[in-house]
Amino acid sequence: MDIIAITGAGTGLGKELALQYAKQGHTIIAIGRRLSPLMDVVWHIEHSGGKAFAYPLDIRCYEEVTHTVNEIVKQHRVTHLVNNAGIGYFGPLSSLSRQQIDEMIQTNVNGTIYMTKAFLPHLLAMPKAKIVNIISTAGLRGKVNEAVYAATKFAIRGFSESLVKELEGTNVSVTAVYMGGMDTPFWNGSDHIKDRSRLRPPKEIAKQIIACEDGQTEIILS
């Protein structure tokens, strides 16, 4: 069984991925900014007979990422990194504050790159390892009122496609996942999605990702 590190594991798709992977017998390293939601995920996994560990971490901080990942790999032979954490602010570009722009870039782009860089030497030392980047269909085409959010997702699309080439011939595979909107806390406080009832549940998306990821460099779930 694998030991799978998941960012943004406390809520939404990250939580569902953690629960679904755990059902398959994998050990979960749940990573996120807030300890309380992570511990809730750990509790659910352990009370279902699985194994999980929580590590609070702000992936926007390079030094914190380096330190925490070093601690994780000292204790766990992580074989699988899922870069799931993300944040979005929506509306016309003129309406976005500098803080909102910076938060999206720092979390969606820098955080994903920092986490991958920190884990990569360890993953390369494993017999077989995997990196999964959760991107969204905003990384495939621009959308109204999503200029900066889409820019961050296009960035991680380029990062993922380049990593596929860079790691070709190694033991580490890379999969980029592009999926449409889900009904998760991601949309709380936003009126960008007028009718959340049409969004798919994260549990359904999580199951699809896990079922499709082996051997694929790209998964598109519309």
Rank of each mutant, 00 (worst) to 15 (best):
S36E: 15
S36N: 13
P37N: 03
P37Q: 01
P37T: 02
V41D: 06
V41K: 04
W43E: 15
H44Q: 15
H44G: 14
I45T: 03
I45H: 03
I45P: 00
S48E: 13
G50E: 00
K51T: 08
A52I: 07
F53P: 02
F53D: 07
A54W: 04
A54Q: 04
Y55A: 06
L57Y: 05
R60D: 08
C61P: 06
Y62D: 14
E64A: 15
V65K: 07
T66M: 09
T66F: 11
T66D: 12
H67I: 11
H67G: 09
T68D: 01
T68F: 07
V69F: 07
V69G: 00
V69W: 05
N70D: 15
N70E: 14
V73D: 06
K74H: 05
R77P: 12
V78Y: 01
T79A: 10
L81I: 11
V82K: 03
V82F: 09
N83Q: 05
N83R: 00
N83P: 02
N84L: 02
N84R: 03
A85T: 01
G86Q: 05
Y89M: 02
P92S: 05
L93D: 04
L93N: 06
S94F: 10
S97W: 03
R98A: 12
Q99M: 13
Q100W: 10
I101S: 00
D102Q: 14
M104K: 03
T107F: 05
N110K: 15
G111I: 01
T112I: 10
I113F: 12
I113V: 04
Y114V: 00
T116Q: 09
K117T: 12
A118M: 05
F119Q: 02
L120A: 03
L120Y: 04
P121F: 14
P121Y: 14
P121K: 15
H122E: 11
L124I: 00
L124N: 12
A125M: 08
A125C: 01
M126I: 08
M126E: 13
K128C: 02
A129F: 00
K130E: 15
I131W: 12
V132S: 01
V132A: 02
I134V: 06
I135N: 10
S136P: 00
S136D: 02
T137E: 02
A138Y: 00
A138V: 07
A138N: 05
G139R: 02
L140P: 08
R141E: 13
R141W: 15
G142R: 08
E146I: 07
A147R: 11
A147T: 12
A147L: 09
